[in-house]
Design a protein around this nucleic acid. Structure first.
Length: 590
RNA sequence: GCGGGCGUAGCUCAGUUGGAUAGAGCAUCCGCCUUCUAAGCGGAAUGUCGUGGGUUCGAGUCCCGCCGCCCGCGCCA
């Protein structure tokens, strides 16, 4: 899809090309630094070298050779040393941007580049019978945003919550329920109780490490093993209890998902693929990719990754015959290939799984599957406690998602109430509650999306719940200010003369709006929601300057007022679109 | 040991396939609410871009070495 800045760049390339002085493959455009009074530049170094000329000389020649028609998007061209600088035609830009936002509304910024292609996005993936904690927040928030962005780019996305509902911890859980009784309650409290009896049972086994399942339960407890076996053999009692745990977990998590605007198309847990495992193992062995060791384990050695590097040895089957999650991940890819035929499968999963995914992807491809599927692991860093210490249930410093959201919302509420008492805003109690929810939750989401996901995060409550500067509330506030002006104005004029928007502040906002589509494409291409966050923040700042200097409602003429109102409406729309891609709400007032 | 990630202002981070004077927020200091919401705006101050080489017209960005921090490397997920 071509937006106004795309056409602007096309026109420039074509104009340079028409001069016949630059080979087409050397026409590369770059965005000038902020201090340069130009919108797009052609650095002439390479082209000059090719034609044995000084760069500045070529720039000069090109500048005089290029002719600009009256209705062109190019407003001007000028040589600045070795750079050929182009400025956009302000009037054309204003008209085009306002028309694009006006016509496309909530679709402005979207694209059709993913048309006809499916993408499976796997994220969140919490464990059954456990509360969602900081470890799941990132996957959930980043994954949902990626899903939104890819969908906005025209891909048909299938969001999948790959629940941890399989594995040996369920034997222990069933044994724990048998011993301590089935917990009662509602929502997360029931999960908290399950965690409690689980770790109590683990302590019985002599394990204190209940947090990351590395307890070596071998030989420790026959009961847990027996339950594990029963579950695998579809024993009715075991199945019923397991089913109940799954349901209780889904129900509790759903509340968090609703608050975070997280939606799944499917929630197939690992157990969903259980039937496929024997076949996968058979294929691995048949293909000669793995060796059966004396103990019975099936081991893959020396498998090259996509760069030809040898991967460390890994197991696809334990010596006791059980499968591993790597095996299940392969089955999952095969299922997705056969069911959806996706162009990509995107995993929003912890950075520490990097090797795991290289192994999964390599073995899957080696088996002949997913040949046409781009398998993408989008890794993110770890969240540490305020002092940089690791968070764990064991240490008692774990941060749970629901509590975190509640904290943020409470904080937002008290700030709104303060504004109310200062007479700075006027809201009903219902509105206060609703806005506090959007603002508080938005702050938490934004804290996770405003930077490159690869970075680790050290929790800092002050910053996380900061409502100033580069934060979700600031963006929401800017949106609310726009809406406030539009409310005061009453009806929005149907048409306006966009050419009246000639002030620098207006132009800066218009340019920023025009950059949104490219920001969305870059966010999608790099699996980087922070690109959207960056764009939102810059847009809000530009709008704040406009807001400070130029009155909309008291504009000098009715025509100018109408044009500015359209600009405000477009800004509000674009901000709302960007926030939606991050999963953040845009309240009408604050 | 091998592999992955990170290193930019006191703190938290941006910095497109190499391009023009390295940018924000927070914190600090100084200003701005009779005027569309001050969750805002303006100004001041803050940098051997971890380090040493190399590539070239040009390197925070690419290549190599080194240092520091985090993580991963068969029977957990």
């Amino acid at each position: 899809m071509k937006y106004v800045l795309d056409r602007f760049a096309d026109e420039i390339r074509s104009a340079i090309n028409t001069t016949g002085r630059v080979p087409p493959d050397l026409i590369e455009l770059a965005e000038p630094k902020a201090n340069v009074p130009a919108d797009l530049a052609f650095p002439c170094f390479r082209a000059a070298k090719a034609s044995n000329m000084a760069p500045a000389q070529l720039a000069q020649q090109l500048a005089s050779a290029i002719k600009i028609s009256r209705d062109s998007l190019i407003g001007g061209v000028e040589a600045a040393g070795p750079f050929l600088n182009f400025t956009v035609n302000r009037r054309q830009l204003a008209q085009n941007v306002l028309a694009e936002v006006g016509q496309q509304g909530q679709h402005f910024g979207g694209d059709d580049l993913g048309q006809g292609q499916k993408v499976v996005v796997e994220y969140s993936s919490p464990n059954i019978a456990r509360r969602m904690h900081v470890g799941h927040i990132r996957s959930t928030i980043i994954g949902q945003s990626l899903n939104n962005i890819l969908s906005f780019l025209g891909y048909e996305t299938i969001s999948d919550n790959h629940l941890g509902d399989y594995g040996k911890q369920f034997g222990t859980l069933l044994a724990a329920i048998e011993k301590f009784g089935r917990p009662e309650g509602e929502g997360e409290s029931i999960l908290a109780k399950l965690e409690e009896i689980y770790s109590r049972y683990n302590r019985l086994l002599g394990s204190i490490n209940a947090d990351d399942f590395d307890a070596d339960a071998a030989g420790a407890d026959d009961t847990a093993r027996a339950w594990s076996l029963k579950l695998e053999q579809n024993d009715p009692t075991a199945r019923e209890l397991w089913q109940w745990m799954v349901q209780a977990t889904l129900q509790a998590n759903q509340r968090n998902y609703d608050r975070l605007a997280v939606r799944f198309d499917t929630q197939h847990g690992e157990s969903f693929y259980a039937d496929m495992l024997p076949s996968v193992l058979g294929q691995v062995e048949e293909a000669g990719l793995a060796e059966r060791e004396a103990g019975g384990a099936l081991v893959v050695k020396g498998l090259p990754d996509r760069n030809g590097k040898e991967l460390p040895t890994f197991l696809v089957q334990r010596s006791d015959g059980a499968t591993l999650y790597l095996t299940r991940d392969i089955a999952t890819i095969i299922y997705r290939e056969q069911t959806y035929h996706p162009a990509k499968i995107v995993y929003a999963v912890d950075q520490r799984q990097e090797l795991h995914f290289r192994q999964v992807f390599a073995l899957t491809k080696a088996l002949g599957y997913a040949r046409d599927i781009e398998l993408v692991h989008v890794p993110f860093g770890t969240i540490f406690g305020p002092n940089g210490e690791a968070l764990s249930t064991r240490k008692g410093n774990m941060v749970y998602l629901e509590a975190l959201l509640d904290d943020a919302v409470a904080r937002a509420k008290s700030i709104i109430e303060q504004k109310l008492s200062e007479g700075k805003t006027d809201l009903t109690p219902e509105q206060v509650a609703e806005i506090a929810e959007q603002v508080g939750v938005g702050a938490v989401i934004y804290n996770d999306l405003y930077q490159d996901p690869k970075r680790n995060i050290t929790l800092d409550w002050e910053r996380m719940l900061s409502f100033e500067g580069n934060s979700a509330p600031y963006l929401q506030y800017t949106h609310a200010r726009c809406r406030s002006i539009l409310r005061e104005a009453g009806t929005l004029p149907a048409t306006c003369d966009a050419q009246l928007l000639e002030a620098e502040q207006e132009l800066a906002v218009l340019k920023q709006l025009a950059r949104f589509p490219e920001a969305v494409r870059r966010a999608g291409g790099n699996y980087a929601p922070y690109v959207i966050a960056d764009w939102l923040y810059t847009t809000a700042r530009e709008f704040a300057r406009f807001y400070r200097d130029l009155s909309v409602l008291k504009a000098a003429t009715p025509e100018l007022r109408a044009a500015r109102l359209q600009l405000v409406a477009a800004t509000a729309q674009a901000l709302a679109n960007g926030l939606a891609l991050l999963g953040i709400g845009a309240p009408e007032r604050m």
